[in-house]
Computed example of a mutant assay.
Amino acid sequence: MARYTGPTSRISRKFGEPIFGADKAYERKSYPPGQHGQSKKRKKLSEYGVQLQQKQKVKYTYGLLERQFSNTFKKAERMRGVTGECLLMLLEARLDNVVYRLGIAPTRRAARQLVGHRHIVVNGGVVNIPSYSMQPGDIISIREKSKSLEVIQDSISRGRQGKFSWLEWDQTDLTGKYLNHPERTEIPENIKEQLIVELYSK
Rank of each mutant, 00 (worst) to 15 (best):
Y62G: 00
I139V: 15
H117T: 03
G125P: 01
R10E: 10
P33F: 06
L88K: 12
Q35D: 09
S39M: 06
L90C: 10
L52E: 02
L174K: 15
V98Y: 00
K24C: 01
K29G: 06
K75R: 11
S157W: 12
R94H: 05
S30G: 15
L167E: 00
N190S: 13
S12W: 00
Q153V: 15
N123T: 05
G162S: 08
I139H: 01
G81S: 12
S133T: 09
T172W: 10
G162D: 04
S133N: 08
K44F: 07
R28P: 02
C86R: 15
F164Y: 14
Y26F: 15
E193W: 07
I142R: 02
T61L: 11
I19H: 13
P33D: 03
C86H: 15
N128S: 14
G176C: 03
G16T: 09
Y200R: 10
I142F: 06
S39I: 09
R160P: 07
G137R: 01
H36C: 08
E193H: 14
E17W: 10
Q56F: 04
S12R: 05
Q161D: 04
Y26Q: 11
Y60K: 08
P7N: 11
L87T: 03
P18H: 04
P182N: 06
E198I: 12
K24W: 11
L199N: 04
I11C: 02
K75S: 14
R118W: 01
V99K: 00
Y200W: 13
P182Y: 02
K147S: 08
K29L: 12
K44P: 04
K43M: 11
Y48D: 10
Q68E: 13
T8P: 04
G176S: 08
G63S: 04
A110S: 15
Y26G: 05
I152Q: 05
T83Q: 10
M1V: 15
Y132W: 11
Q38A: 14
I142H: 04
A2H: 14
A76G: 03
I11G: 07
G84V: 09
F15R: 05
Y178K: 00
G162C: 01
E168K: 08
F164H: 12
R143Q: 15
R109A: 14
T175F: 01
L90S: 07
R80S: 13
R28G: 03
V197G: 11
P33Y: 03
M89F: 04
S133G: 14
N128D: 15
Y4R: 03
L114K: 06
V115E: 09
G162T: 07
E17G: 06
W169S: 07
H181C: 04
L87I: 06
S12V: 01
V115C: 00
R67H: 15
I120F: 01
D23I: 10
S155Y: 02
E92P: 00
K147G: 07
S201D: 15
V99C: 00
Q161G: 01
A76E: 02
V82H: 12
R67C: 11
G63K: 10
K192C: 08
F73T: 03
K14E: 14
G49S: 04
G37W: 09
G116Q: 07
L87E: 06
L64N: 11
E144F: 03
S30K: 13
E27N: 08
P188L: 06
I191R: 11
R158K: 15
S201L: 12
S9R: 05
T172N: 15
K163Y: 12
